[in-house]
């Protein structure tokens, strides 16, 4: 799998890899389907409800029923929209969400690419989704959508910088932007220990980038109806939602690669359990973590949101860089 990357490509290998990538797409779609189910179940339990339990045993087929419903619902285009942008927006919002998986190595044996700038590629491509959201919100010609989209953009650009600066600490530790090399640098101790401030900043900024509670202002259903996708119906709406959930897993994988040693076991004694299992456990843990917050935190106000990013997280991220530089020069880490 990974060895294929280092030898000249044959047609058979290309076909094999393309099939594997198609398989990954299906795995991601499956994970998203059940993430929605688990989210609803968890929220239900945390609020003393049962959650979905009608369709299939324990409600296991609920999301599948929902998808089928969305597939067969009328998806009309409102009369006053900017048609080309309106049609393009869900694709622009979704495509980067899957493309970022290209640079995420899953274990030491399974990786779909090995480029030197993996982390930068992830950050760059992931921010393209904002463009899709702005396109959709603006093209809808609806005041709610426009407010939602503008909030989304303001929020994403505000939290992008703390996110990128926090990851910089990890890059300094590893001396590489390649995610495989970053994992390899965590053999002795996971980055979450020496980079704890960076991890906190990264986690909070990541929640904002994912539009999850307490930063779900873009869709704030109680004030903006649904924000940028209020004019979307049927499967076009579904793809905006899908993009959001796919990012949940991409970000979960990225957090475990950057701060929790990816496929490395917590202790060498546990290395008999394959790396893929560790990677999956860590990724799922961080993908489901936002659901817990969703039941716990109220939504922040838009002015608090911006102030917190620029005056709170940003200086903290800079302090983290200076601290890492000082500790590295002093030879502590």
């Amino acid at each position: 799998m990974r060895d294929w990357l280092y030898e000249p490509l044959t047609l058979g290998r290309f076909a094999g890899m393309a099939l594997l990538i198609f398989g990954l797409l299906n795995v991601v779609l499956f994970l998203v389907t059940y993430a929605i189910y688990i989210q609803r179940k968890l929220l239900g339990w945390m609020q003393s409800r049962v959650g979905p339990n009608r369709v299939g045993p324990y409600g296991l087929l609920q999301t599948i029923a929902d998808v089928l419903k969305l597939l067969t619902k009328e998806s009309f285009i409102p009369s006053h929209v900017d048609r080309p942008l309106f049609l393009l927006a869900p694709i622009v919002a979704f495509a980067p969400a899957f493309v970022v998986f290209a640079v995420l190595p899953l274990t030491d044996r399974i990786a779909f690419s090995d480029i030197g700038v993996g982390l930068l590629f992830y950050i760059g491509v992931a921010s393209l989704s904002t463009l899709g959201i702005l396109m959709g919100g603006w093209a809808s010609n609806n005041k709610w959508s426009l407010i939602g989209a503008m909030r989304a953009v303001a929020m994403m650009i505000a939290y992008e910088i703390p996110l990128v600066l926090a990851a910089l600490g990890v890059v300094m530790q590893a001396g590489s932007l390649n995610l495989t090399a970053i994992v390899a640098s965590q053999e002795t101790v996971w980055n979450v220990v020496p980079q704890f401030i960076g991890f906190l900043v990264f986690l909070i900024a990541a929640l904002a980038e994912l539009n999850r509670t307490p930063f779900d202002l873009t869709e704030a259903e109680s004030e903006l109806i649904a924000g940028y996708h209020v004019e979307y119906s049927g499967f076009r709406f579904a793809f905006f939602m899908l993009a959001e959930y796919v990012y949940l897993f991409a970000m979960g994988a990225l957090i475990s690669l950057l701060y929790f040693g990816g496929w490395l076991p917590p202790h060498p004694a546990l290395s008999f359990i394959p790396g893929g299992v560790w990677m999956a456990l860590k990724t799922l843990l961080f993908a489901y973590f936002p659901f817990w917050l969703q039941a716990t935190f109220p939504r922040v106000r838009v002015d608090q949101l911006m102030t917190f990013a620029w005056k709170g997280l940003m200086p903290l991220a800079l302090v983290n860089i200076v601290l890492t530089a000082a500790l590295k020069t002093a030879g502590v880490v």
Binding site: L5, L9, F98, V99, F101, A102, F112, S113, D114
Partner: peptide, 15 residues
Amino acid sequence: YTNSLIFIAVFLVLA
């Protein structure tokens, strides 16, 4: 590097 770019292109096409 070349192989990685080819596979990223496959990702893009599927996406």
